[in-house]
Every structure is written in C-alpha cells, then in structure tokens.
Amino acid sequence: MAAGGDHGSPDSYRSPLASRYASPEMCFVFSDRYKFRTWRQLWLWLAEAEQTLGLPITDEQIQEMKSNLENIDFKMAAEEEKRLRHDVMAHVHTFGHCCPKAAGIIHLGATSCYVGDNTDLIILRNALDLLLPKLARVISRLADFAKERASLPTLGFTHFQPAQLTTVGKRCCLWIQDLCMDLQNLKRVRDDLRFRGVKGTTGTQASFLQLFEGDDHKVEQLDKMVTEKAGFKRAFIITGQTYTRKVDIEVLSVLASLGASVHKICTDIRLLANLKEMEEPFEKQQIGSSAMPYKRNPMRSERCCSLARHLMTLVMDPLQTASVQWFERTLDDSANRRICLAEAFLTADTILNTLQNISEGLVVYPKVIERRIRQELPFMATENIIMAMVKAGGSRQDCHEKIRVLSQQAASVVKQEGGDNDLIERIQVDAYFSPIHSQLDHLLDPSSFTGRASQQVQRFLEEEVYPLLKPYESVMKVKAELCL
C-alpha cells in the first residue's frame, strides 16, 4: 500500500493539533497551500530580480507567473513527485505547466533550498508574528487579574506546605514575570531571523556568478533584492546548502521555554482548584465526569500541561538535527523538520489560546482563602504575639514557653481530632496574655502579614508589564474561544 493518505478522510490519521486544537490561522501558515504558494512567490521574486539585473526574462513571463501564483494543481504535483521522487522539481514542473512561456526560467540558477529553506524562514517569521500578540493578550488578562487582587491576602506555599502570606495578585505576578520573559525572547528570536537568500547549491553562489558572467556586484544585488522582497532586513552571508540548523534550535528553545512557563502556571491553577481557592472557567453544560456528576475538573489547565510537556520535548529534535548536518548538509534534517517545526508552533498556539481562555474567566473564592488563612495564621502570628507581650512588660522566655504549650495543644486538636485551630481562643482565655487581649485582632490582621506584596504588584505592572504590552494595544480586544 502506498504511503500517505487522504487526510480529510475519517479513515486516515490526522494530527489532533490540526484537527482538534490549533487555530485556523496557525494551521494555514503550515498548510501545503501556504507552503507551495510561497515557493511560487519566491520563484517570481527571483525572476523579477534577475530581470532587473539584466537576464533575458520578459515582462510577459513575469506576468504569467504572477497570474498563476494561486493556480496550484495539487493532484498534478503529487503525481509528479511520485514520478520524480523530488518535491521541488515536482512543483517546478507543475508551475511550468500553467506558465508555459515562463517554464524555462522558473528556478533559474537556484537549488531546492532556495524555495525550501527560504519558505521555512518566512513561515517561522509569520508563525512567530501570530504567537506574539496571543502571548501579549494572556499577559494582559493576567495583569488585569493581578491588579484587581493585588491586596487580597492568601496563604503562600513553599514545598506545598503553608508559608508566609502573600497576595493573590502577587502570586499571579510570578506567572506574568515568566511570560514577559517569554514574550521578550519570542520577539528577540523573531527579529534575529535572517533570510537564507540566493546562495546556490553549497552556499557559494557559483551558479549565479556564472549567470551574471562573473559580476560579483550583481550577485550581491540579486541576494539583497530577493531578501528585501521577502520582507527581511538581512540575509546570511555564510550558508551551506541550507541555512544553519542552529536557527531551528533557537526558535524551538524559546517555544519550549514558553511551554515550561505555561505548565507551571496551569499546575498552580490545578492545585488551587483542589484547594477550592480558584477555578478555571466551567461552562453551564460542561460535564466533569461521566460517573461523578459533582466533579469540576480543571480540564483546560490539564490540557495545557499535557501539550506543554510535548512542546518542551520537541527542542531535542533540532538539537540532534543540527549535530548531524555533515559538511554542507545531509538530508537527516528533512523529514524531522517537516514534523517538529509545525508541531512546535501548533502546540504553542494551542496552549496560548487555551491559557487566554482560562485567564479571561478565572474565578476566585475569597471566603475559602480566608478560612485557610484562619487555619494557619495563628501559628504564624506567634512571633508577633511574643513581641507584643514583651512590649507590655512580659518575659520573652516565659511567653515563648506559654505559646509553645498552647500551640501544641491547638495542633493536637487540628491533627488528632480534625478540629479547627483554636490557638487564639486559648490565648484569649489565658490570664497571662490579658495585657494584649485587646491587640489580638490587630495582630491577626492578614494584611499585616503580606509585606509589600501589593506595592510590588503595582510597581511591576507599571514599570515592566504595561510598557512591554504597549506595541500590542491594537490587538488586545480579541477574545479566545474554545470549541473543545
């Protein structure tokens, strides 16, 4: 049975990233139509530049190519590739079939990587351009969430054990800070992308030097003109047959890092959902379990974690691919890159769409948070109580021993009897502590235990987050809708 299948058929496997999760716009960027249309555009740009620099290419040939950029006979191309065992030459023939007058000058002087690699770089750039505003929107939604809850005390956790208090907004800023680093890295790697350009079979530009009869300047002009037509500021000066596969490492490393950030955020949300302090959106008709109707599973956060793990592992592909590119190139890269580049971007696209949807509907339960604080705060307040007693004339050592005994009794009630923490009640009825009984409410005010959390939130948002989001103001209103 021949390899390949009808990918629109229910009898043929289709990647869930495309069929179930990723956005239509990201799927289109990695589609065959987008790819092969870009090949034709690159052939047109090459012909236009070659004509401008004096090669015998007519206006009629150029116009014929322009008129057929979208006229792609995919069936013919597939048949040609089956016959020739070469995808680029299959599309040269297919393009030439609908451009008979231009057929002889299509791909003039070029090698397969002229269309293959340059198209990949265009796709990487455009895919990054799709991700950047999506990530900015996630940051914006979380920034709104953090600002609104900047002063809401909550129990902090280290080692997932109760620690000092923080605020809900401050905790959210930990998430935002990681995503801001990801946004900066995505922008950097996007701006650092260079075009492969017009380089020939081993990167020496020998074929173009021959076409222009040894004119170095025209060869350099050709490279520059096509690079500018493709919208790049610069091209690699040095290439082998391909652009260095280190570029793929750079791009997928940034995406993998984004995956790590999203995994951490969504894990926190899942843990908070278990504590009943916070939940992701839950639709009115949504079913959490087929057997347990009360369940409210954090399905979206779980999906993000599941896909983020996949995204983090994909960076190993370009690392290994770059390491086995012998001399000017081997074909070890080809099949692998067809999979890992598309999957990385479709996965990143999915987790950003999902995280935006989550961040637009996060639900906080202040009463649950308050109750958990009441359970733990008495123990945390013991040092403040000791200091207040010393100020009232008591002995630190005597007070410490009193607190120690009462704390152990209260802990026994919590752990052995399943009761509430009654340390404060014990202190309130103990005559030894009568000098500070009137101060206990103040000493137990949760806001006095959150330090500068709310001020940190305000400063972080104003100095770091809002300036970073400013270039994306025009796209901030787009909502994230999930079908599944």
Rank of each mutant, 00 (worst) to 15 (best):
A3M: 15
A3G: 13
D6E: 12
H7Q: 13
H7P: 09
P10Y: 15
P10K: 14
D11H: 11
Y13W: 08
Y13K: 11
P16E: 09
S19Q: 13
Y21F: 09
A22D: 10
S23D: 15
M26A: 00
C27S: 12
C27D: 01
C27W: 13
V29W: 00
V29P: 15
V29N: 15
F30Y: 05
F30A: 09
L42F: 14
W43C: 11
W43F: 07
E50L: 01
Q51A: 03
Q51C: 05
Q51I: 10
T52A: 04
T52I: 04
L53S: 10
L53T: 03
G54T: 08
G54N: 01
G54F: 06
L55R: 08
P56T: 13
D59P: 09
D59G: 10
D59M: 03
Q61V: 04
I62Q: 05
I62A: 04
Q63N: 13
K66G: 01
K66E: 03
N68S: 02
L69V: 03
L69F: 00
L69N: 15
N71L: 09
N71S: 05
I72V: 04
A78R: 09
A78Q: 12
K82D: 07
L84M: 09
H86N: 02
V88E: 01
V88I: 00
M89L: 07
M89W: 02
H91V: 04
V92E: 12
V92S: 05
G96S: 01
C98M: 03
C98W: 09
A102I: 01
G104K: 02
G104I: 10
H107Y: 03
H107C: 15
L108R: 06
L108V: 02
N118G: 01
D120V: 06
D120F: 07
L121F: 05
L121K: 02
L124G: 08
R125M: 11
N126V: 02
N126T: 06
A127M: 05
A127F: 03
A127P: 15
L131N: 01
L135E: 13
R137H: 07
R137K: 04
V138S: 07
I139E: 02
I139A: 08
I139W: 13
L142G: 09
L142F: 07
A143F: 14
F145E: 04
R149L: 01
A150G: 05
L152G: 08
L152V: 07
P153H: 00
T154C: 06
G156A: 04
F157Y: 04
Q164F: 07
Q164A: 09
L165Q: 15
T166A: 09
W175P: 01
W175G: 03
Q177A: 09
D178E: 03
L179D: 00
M181T: 09
D182P: 11
L183I: 12
Q184H: 04
K187S: 11
K187G: 06
V189E: 00
R190Q: 05
R190T: 01
R190E: 00
L193W: 01
R196L: 08
R196D: 01
R196P: 10
G197D: 04
V198E: 05
K199C: 10
K199L: 02
T202R: 05
T202S: 03
A206G: 04
S207I: 08
F208D: 07
F208W: 00
L209F: 12
L209M: 06
L209S: 01
L211M: 12
D216W: 01
D216S: 02
D216N: 08
K218M: 06
K218D: 04
E220C: 06
Q221A: 03
Q221M: 15
L222G: 06
T227R: 01
T227H: 02
E228R: 14
K229E: 07
K229Q: 00
G231D: 12
F232K: 05
F232T: 02
F232L: 13
F232H: 03
K233C: 10
Q241G: 09
Q241E: 02
T244L: 00
R245N: 12
R245M: 15
R245D: 06
R245Y: 07
I249N: 12
L255H: 14
L255A: 15
A256P: 15
A256S: 14
L258F: 15
L258V: 15
H263P: 12
T267W: 13
R270T: 15
N274E: 04
E277A: 06
P281M: 12
F282T: 12
E283K: 05
K284I: 00
Q286I: 02
G288R: 10
S290A: 13
S290P: 05
A291M: 15
A291W: 14
A291R: 02
M292V: 13
P293M: 03
P293E: 09
R296G: 12
R296S: 10
P298Q: 05
R300H: 15
R303I: 01
C305I: 03
C305T: 11
A308C: 09
A308G: 14
H310D: 05
V315R: 11
L319Q: 01
L319P: 04
T321R: 01
A322N: 00
S323R: 13
W326G: 04
W326K: 02
T330E: 01
L331A: 15
L331P: 03
A335R: 09
A335S: 08
A335E: 11
N336H: 04
N336R: 03
N336Q: 03
L341H: 05
L341Q: 09
T354D: 06
S359G: 15
G361R: 02
G361C: 13
Y365R: 15
P366H: 07
P366W: 10
V368P: 01
V368H: 00
R371V: 01
R372C: 15
P378G: 13
F379Y: 08
M380P: 15
T382E: 07
T382Y: 15
N384T: 08
M387W: 03
A388H: 00
M389E: 00
M389K: 13
V390K: 14
G394Q: 04
R396A: 05
Q397P: 11
Q397W: 01
H400P: 07
R404V: 02
L406F: 05
Q409P: 11
A411T: 12
V413D: 09
E417M: 11
G418F: 01
G419S: 01
D420P: 12
L423T: 05
I424D: 10
R426N: 13
I427G: 02
D430W: 15
D430N: 02
H437C: 01
H437V: 05
H437N: 12
H437P: 04
D445Y: 03
S447W: 14
S447Y: 08
S448W: 10
S448Y: 00
T450I: 02
G451S: 03
G451D: 09
G451N: 00
S454T: 06
V457T: 14
V457K: 01
Q458H: 09
F460C: 15
E463P: 13
E464K: 15
Y466P: 14
Y466C: 02
Y466F: 08
P467T: 01
K470T: 04
K470Q: 11
P471V: 06
V478T: 00
A480G: 15
C483T: 06
L484E: 13
